[in-house]
Simulated assay, not measured.
Amino acid sequence: MSLPRVVVFGEALTDIVQTTPGHWRGYPGGAPWNVARTLSKLGIATGFGGAISEDSLGEEIAEQSIAAGLDMRFIQRVKADPLVAVVPSSAPPTYFFAGEADLRFSLDALPEGWLDEVEICHFSCISLAREPLASLLIRTAEQAKAAGKVISYDPNWRNLMTARYREETFPTLGKLASTIKLSDEDLKNLYPGYEEAQALQALRELNPEAQVLFTRGERGLTLYTAEGTHEQPALKVTVADTVGAGDASMAGWLGSGLLGITDLQQRLVFAAACASVSCSHAGAYSPTVAEVEALIAERGR
């Protein structure tokens, strides 16, 4: 069995959400896992490099990973409490994290030769703010970069990220990455006190050669490259919810290039369509190429 073209490193977790007072519901998620699952649904051979628990919560993540077609050789099952995000309120969002299964991830358990075959390594979210996993993944990114692999990075700011993350982790990954995806909210947290234009300029100076995919929700996407800027409006749909939309756009951007789309504007359209299809379904929905192409064709009329 051949090895995947993309490995997404980080956490998979269960969101435990209070839907109404006293009523809770669990949803498998985690930004890196969402990106991996969407890439696989788009037909890209993908591995999710992360550890999940052996209990029922981990089993649901494993089952959905299999259903999405992820390479299960990269997912590690461990005897540890499951990682959960407890969400007492969604509006405004309040949350905290518990569990440690994600922290048990080991590079030694990955398939032999994976680094020789992989084309893109993607890193994001709280996995880069939880030790000892964070240091392990930063070393992995450095090794992959040294081996000539493309590094993709989405900071995906969360409340457990500290000044150390802002001052050390973010610039380290930012300088390694060929692609940096971040939202307007991420930018505000990474560059507090900056106007948006100032923050974007500081980000561009951090790594002038990187492609920066900047997302603004319903206001669309902007791509910054060393050669210029490309704008893409959001593709309007009836929104069920926006959970996972940013992850879908990230996967759409990476996946479009691997699917052979070379024109940057067409890749932006594909990424925007991935986000919109995701928003038209409840939960962190992973679109297929057929769904994405159907939406593009419909909005192109």
Rank of each mutant, 00 (worst) to 15 (best):
1 M>Q: 03
9 F>E: 09
15 D>G: 08
16 I>W: 04
16 I>Y: 02
19 T>H: 05
20 T>R: 15
20 T>D: 12
20 T>H: 13
21 P>K: 14
24 W>R: 09
25 R>P: 00
27 Y>I: 07
27 Y>V: 09
28 P>Q: 06
29 G>I: 14
33 W>A: 13
37 R>E: 01
42 L>E: 07
42 L>D: 06
45 A>L: 06
46 T>F: 02
47 G>W: 09
48 F>T: 00
50 G>Y: 05
50 G>T: 05
51 A>N: 00
57 L>G: 00
58 G>Y: 00
58 G>S: 11
60 E>A: 12
65 S>P: 08
68 A>S: 15
69 G>Q: 08
70 L>Y: 14
71 D>I: 07
72 M>E: 07
73 R>Q: 11
73 R>D: 10
73 R>L: 01
74 F>E: 01
75 I>K: 00
85 A>L: 05
98 A>F: 02
100 E>L: 00
101 A>W: 09
102 D>T: 04
102 D>Y: 04
110 L>V: 01
114 W>D: 02
114 W>E: 03
115 L>C: 06
115 L>E: 14
120 I>V: 15
120 I>E: 12
122 H>Q: 13
130 R>V: 06
135 S>A: 15
136 L>W: 00
137 L>S: 07
137 L>N: 09
140 T>E: 06
140 T>G: 01
142 E>K: 08
143 Q>W: 01
144 A>W: 05
145 K>W: 09
145 K>Y: 12
145 K>V: 04
148 G>L: 10
150 V>C: 08
150 V>F: 11
152 S>Q: 00
154 D>P: 08
156 N>M: 07
159 N>Y: 01
161 M>V: 02
161 M>K: 03
161 M>G: 07
161 M>E: 12
162 T>L: 13
164 R>Q: 13
167 E>Q: 15
167 E>L: 14
172 T>H: 12
173 L>Y: 05
177 A>M: 09
177 A>L: 13
180 I>L: 14
182 L>K: 07
188 K>Q: 15
190 L>P: 08
191 Y>V: 13
191 Y>Q: 03
191 Y>T: 14
192 P>W: 06
195 E>F: 02
200 L>C: 04
202 A>C: 04
209 E>C: 01
212 V>H: 09
212 V>I: 15
213 L>R: 01
216 R>H: 10
218 E>Y: 01
221 L>E: 15
221 L>A: 15
221 L>N: 10
222 T>K: 13
222 T>W: 00
225 T>I: 11
227 E>T: 15
232 Q>F: 03
237 V>P: 11
238 T>Q: 14
239 V>T: 15
240 A>I: 11
241 D>L: 07
246 G>C: 09
247 D>M: 03
248 A>K: 10
248 A>E: 11
248 A>R: 10
250 M>E: 08
255 G>M: 02
258 L>P: 06
259 L>S: 12
262 T>M: 07
262 T>I: 01
269 V>Q: 14
269 V>M: 11
273 A>N: 06
273 A>S: 06
273 A>W: 02
275 A>M: 12
283 G>D: 10
285 Y>G: 08
288 T>M: 08
289 V>F: 00
291 E>V: 05
292 V>H: 05
293 E>W: 03
298 E>V: 11
298 E>Q: 14
